[in-house]
Design a protein around this nucleic acid. Structure first.
Lengths: 187, 187
DNA sequence: TTGACAAACGGAGTCGACTCCGTTTATAGT
DNA sequence: ACTATAAACGGAGTCGACTCCGTTTGTCAA
């Protein structure tokens, strides 16, 4: 890749992140991003073939940070398996709350399947949860373990999460407890 | 409501349903629907304030049919609670598969929360699952019961379902079994 | 250093969702 | 039947996502 192209690629992401702080993702147009990054719309679209892919790339950066912080935690903790699971779950909920807008936009895009769920980092997120869930419920086989993790993640996707928070009137903590309660076998 | 208005309202839905059989939901533009229904775009939008709401209304019609057929089943069945739960679950998966496109479109819209999840019929869907899950796991309290049903529904939403089918390579039946296995307590 | 060319750029243009507003029409009260 | 009027209608117009293609530029081999 040419040097100028790489610079533009980076600049687009940082510019978008900046704009998303001031206005909602939906409010910021691709033209706004192009203008702020001092490039033409064509250039923007060559790097990220649509708004979703751009947001997806940004999300993956944040997920990367989240994964790192969890891995640091797991490296140094001496807590019980259940406590470890609950910690990661709680942190994940907090992380999602922080990036609510962006994640919601990404998850409701038509190309999510390609740019997001197939990504290496998403796979690592699944691995992280499998790693902390496995010691908590050792009776699960591989397929069941994966399935429960997928279900946990599905339940915390923007729509479902919003539904629980605002229609079911659950707090972040209550939601975490219900998930934990379902997945941690009662001896 | 004026008689002509009611006629147009109905005609829009039937016309849209017809067009969605020939082409994908995304391919059919609102203008196409308006033209086919022999009305102006303005009229279309007065009845359904956006494409999502229109699709939502159509989905709810189908959900209504699904609910009726399940209620018929429950009225006449003598199967065990577990078998009843599995039956409804299987039928729901089949129903969703049949309306995949439409439901996917509805569920990825920005206004889903208002026009879909808050609707009476969606609430009835939750009630249906609660009704068949409750006898299967009587140790659940009301909140837990609702939560598990919400989770079941979340897992079968278009994105999560597609992920399970195409990334995890699960069949409809396998998916149903995994859900059943998680929700039906092993004596 | 230079020149060939693939890669990158920019912006005008397309297409579809959605809005606005002047015109038409069903209907209710006389 | 007639008219007043609120409701409904239609389509031109706006806005934003995304595409296309003629122009510019970085880079590498000579």
């Amino acid at each position: 890749m040419r040097k100028d192209a790489q610079q533009n690629r980076d600049k687009i992401l940082t510019t978008a992140a900046k704009l998303f702080q001031a206005r909602t993702v939906a409010e910021v147009s691709m033209k706004d991003i192009a203008t702020a990054a001092e490039i033409g719309p064509g250039t923007l679209y060559r790097h990220y073939s649509n708004k979703n892919e751009l947001c997806s790339a940004l999300s993956l950066k944040y997920i990367d940070q989240f994964l790192s912080s969890c891995q640091d935690y797991l490296r140094q903790t001496t807590a019980t398996p259940v406590a470890q699971f609950n910690h990661v779950l709680t942190q994940y909920i907090l992380f999602r709350e922080r990036r609510l807008q962006l994640l919601a936009f990404v998850e409701t895009g038509p190309t999510v399947m390609d740019t997001y769920y197939r990504s290496e980092l998403y796979h690592q997120l699944v691995q992280l949860f499998k790693r902390v869930l496995k010691p908590v419920n050792q009776s699960l086989n591989e397929v069941e373990l994966t399935f429960q993790v997928d279900m946990l993640i599905a339940m915390l996707k923007s729509d479902s999460y919003a539904f629980q928070r605002h229609q079911r009137d659950l707090s972040q903590a209550q939601l975490g407890q219900l998930i934990s309660h379902l997945m941690v076998p009662k001896d």
